[in-house]
Write a protein that binds this DNA or RNA. Structure first.
Length: 777
DNA sequence: GAGCACTGC
């Protein structure tokens, strides 16, 4: 097969640059001298019989192999999965792999894997579990001989990509062939793929179309302790699939001491045909490889944690030996502020106390990638030979706790707080709240100090507070979210009886009731709680139910093309940027796109300008000039493409009203109501305040709005709870439209008495009068 | 006249 065949693949995708070796955040994971592999993704003439008799795995007995056999096969000379001669690079990596802590327990792992269907595996940081366990499984499960795959899930995309690349290197294959990955917008797998790293959300999507996950012979859920929504649902699902598919092997990998909880959860006992079926889930633990971290507590509680944090950082700089510092704070503003203060104080220390140079870097999710990358710059050297050490301080959010790993951190300062999502089912609002972290989180933070050598962690709370006040684990996401989307997914997965669906931590009944109610109003579920045709369609879209319903209904309003754009814009980060240093100029630029009837329309105008020929000639320049986020707009483009494909597949019409038609914007405003009729607020009469229709909450229009405050009724995209109650991204609508488009929700016979009902009744009369006039003509 | 912790489809 010629080189040309390999590179001229039809499947090569160009949506995004996804070569993980190009990812600056992962550069520390790659040996610079081992870059001999391109990422050309090949779809060659493989016909399913490439693994022939001479294959060293030929005599392996499935689910009865030994570690010794696997070692032999791994030792070459040929690659047991491709029959190709193994390269030098492979053997070099093999040496380091054999040194990993998991490797010592390979036989033990296999024994356990053979003896059971579900296995709980606990491996601490540095044990090598994410890269090695899936390979241990491959050599025993031999999925290529059965036309199956092994899947390994990750909570984050970058992890799925980078680990897949690493394992492809370890196995001496091209990424996308035997080893691949699958994440939203990027599928690097092919017909030869036997090991697939993927995001947990991606596997959940697949399950919606293949409830028994028949493509897989083994599913490995990695980082299960993070308890993402997708992981929790998958675990519940896998418990059921395990009973339907005795041939499916399941490995749950976790990093915490909470392993017994997983073990207990996966011990299944079920009566089938008067026989008791019992699946035990044995537990295997492997030590990690990290350096010790000494923990320090404060003597007394700190009143002002930011002030205490700054003091601690400066004290470390003044008194501790060489090594970088990581400080955890809660959000952008707090971090930027702290960075300024640290830099100022450090300058003074350098001038007056002969301290070493100190460089300060902020780190949070919304920071542009180029600036995020700076945290990997080396610390400054001492200002004179033999002088006090220079160092860097990184002031970051929780992103530094799991998502990004920075080597060289020796000192961690942990004030013990983070912003967490909380959901209040009573007022049906999700909000962000600064809250104390959990013990597990505190341990994870401390661990960041011991990656390269022994370190120190300064906790800005007392030891007693740590022991008594911090909860063990952060509450899993499923207990902190609006579950409308989750319930829709579960229904699509065939879970009819939600109350008895076995989740590891069942949410409050009220949260479930709220979700069912919301889906019922959206006509996604009927009165029996069964999925409707609309619900079926909505579940196909990777969107919140209200957005999905809005999009599906949009052809009826002759504006599905526009709603496609708007839906995409509403599911990416804010497209308007407003740097603190140029607020006025940013506002002036936004004014160019402003539509007086609403922020949704303003967003759409900006998007259309971005898609225009002038902007497309130089998107970067256009965005910079107009204070728009190129990243957000490009991401909206990606989302739009994906949604458009689903629209086409579902045979939903793509239509527009002529731009010069006077109904162009009216149609869009009406279409908003089809999904967001539960998010309407009415002016309170007295002045600036509005009242929500849903639960009579007093709210203000968010100051970022371009809408004049004289609109009687508005539809809002979100409710933000900060110093005040705000509704954000608002567009003016009419009461008549509400009655017309959402007659069940706005049924005047059952609508609760009050100002809103009176106003709706007036609108109803107006409609009747108009009808009568038309009828009389 | 305010503020987006972090993921994911």
């Amino acid at each position: 097969m010629g080189e040309k065949d390999v590179t001229s693949s039809k499947k090569a995708k160009s949506l995004k640059t996804t070569d993980p070796s190009q990812n600056p955040y992962l550069s520390h994971m790659y040996d610079t001298d081992v870059n001999g592999y391109g990422n050309a993704y090949g779809n060659d003439n493989y016909c399913g019989n490439g693994h022939s008799e001479e294959n060293t795995l030929a005599h392996f007995k499935r689910h009865a192999t030994t570690a010794e056999q696997a070692y032999k096969a791994e030792d070459g000379p040929n690659n047991p999965f491709t029959s190709q001669p193994l390269t030098k690079k492979y053997f070099k990596i093999l040496q380091t792999r054999r040194d990993l802590p998991v490797n010592k327990q390979r036989q033990e792992f296999l024994d356990m894997f053979h003896s059971t269907q579900i296995l709980v595996f606990v491996g601490e940081t540095g044990s090598g579990k994410t890269t090695q366990i899936p390979q241990f499984v491959l050599y025993d499960d031999l999925p290529h001989l059965y036309g199956k795959l092994v899947a390994c899930t990750q909570p984050r995309r970058v992890a799925a990509m980078s680990v897949a690349q690493r394992v492809a290197d370890e196995m001496d294959v091209r990424l996308g062939e035997e080893v691949g990955y699958s994440i939203r917008f990027d599928d690097k797998t092919g017909p030869k793929t036997i090991l697939k790293y993927m995001t947990d959300g991606m596997l959940l999507r697949e399950a919606m179309h293949d409830r028994d996950l028949t493509r897989y012979s083994c599913i490995i859920l990695d980082e299960a302790h993070e308890r993402t929504l997708a992981t929790d649902i998958l675990m519940g699902l896998l418990k059921e699939v395990a009973l339907r598919r005795p041939d499916l092997k399941i490995v749950i990998m976790s990093a915490t001491l909470d392993a017994q909880k997983f073990q207990k959860y996966f011990t299944i006992e079920k009566e089938i045909e008067r026989r008791t079926l019992r699946i035990e889930a044995p537990l295997l633990a492997v030590p990690g490889r990290t350096h010790p971290v000494e923990i320090f507590y404060t003597q007394d509680p700190e009143k002002d944690y930011v002030e205490a944090a700054l003091r601690t950082v400066l004290q470390i700089h003044a008194t501790e030996p060489e090594g970088d510092i990581l400080l955890f704070l809660t959000g952008e503003e707090e971090i930027e502020d702290a960075c300024r203060k640290i830099a100022l104080e450090a300058d003074e220390m350098i001038r007056e106390a002969d301290a070493g140079p100190l460089r300060v870097y902020p780190l949070y999710g919304t920071l542009p990638p180029a600036q995020q990358q700076k945290i990997f710059d080396p610390a400054p050297p001492p200002s004179r030979p033999g002088g006090p050490p220079g160092r860097k301080v990184i002031v970051g959010t929780n992103i530094a706790e799991t998502s990004l790993t920075i080597d060289g951190i020796v000192y961690v300062v942990d004030p013990g707080f983070s912003k967490q999502k909380v959901y209040n089912p009573r007022i049906r609002v999700e909000s962000l709240l600064v809250s104390p972290i959990s013990k597990a989180s505190a341990q994870q933070r401390a661990g960041r100090a011991g990656r390269t050598r022994p370190g120190k962690c300064f906790r800005l709370y007392t030891e007693a507070a740590f022991k008594k006040e911090l909860i063990e684990q952060t509450y899993p996401e499923i207990l902190r979210s609006n579950l409308a989307n989750t319930v829709l997914e579960l229904k699509k997965l065939g879970v009819d009886d939600l109350v008895h669906f076995d989740l590891m931590d069942p949410p409050a009944p009220e949260t479930l009731m709220r979700a069912l109610e919301e889906l019922n109003y959206l006509a996604c579920l009927d009165d029996n709680g069964d999925l409707t045709r609309l619900g079926q369609l909505a579940s196909e879209f990777p969107l919140d139910p209200a957005l999905a319903v809005m999009l599906i209904s949009s052809p009826e309003f002759y504006c599905s093309n526009e709603m496609l754009s708007l839906t995409a814009l509403l599911s990416v980060p804010q497209i308007f940027v407003r740097p603190a240093s140029a607020r006025k100029r940013a506002d002036d630029m936004k004014a160019l796109f402003m539509h007086p009837d609403g922020d949704h329309l303003t967003m759409l105008n900006a998007y259309h300008a971005f898609k225009g020929p002038q902007a497309q000639a130089d998107p970067k320049g256009f965005c910079h000039q107009h204070f728009l986020s190129l990243r957000a707009l490009q991401s909206a483009d990606n989302v739009r493409m994906q949604l458009k494909r689903i629209m086409e597949k579902s045979e939903l019409e793509l239509v527009s009203t002529d731009f010069n038609d006077k109904e162009y914007y009216t149609n869009i405003r009406r279409a908003l109501i089809a999904g967001f009729f539960m998010q309407i607020a009415k002016k309170d009469g007295t002045g600036k305040t509005y009242k929500t229709v849903k639960d009579d909450q007093s709210v203000l229009l968010h100051p970022s709005t371009g809408l004049s405050t004289d609109s009687e009724w508005v539809v809002y995209n979100e409710f933000v709870l900060t110093t005040k109650n705000y509704v954000r991204t608002v567009t003016s609508v009419k009461a008549e439209w509400l009655l017309d488009i959402a007659p069940i929700y706005y049924d005047l016979d059952t609508f609760p008495k009050g100002d809103i009902k009176t106003a709706l009744q007036a609108a109803e009369k107006k409609i009747q009068r108009r009808k009568a006039m038309k009828g009389g003509r």
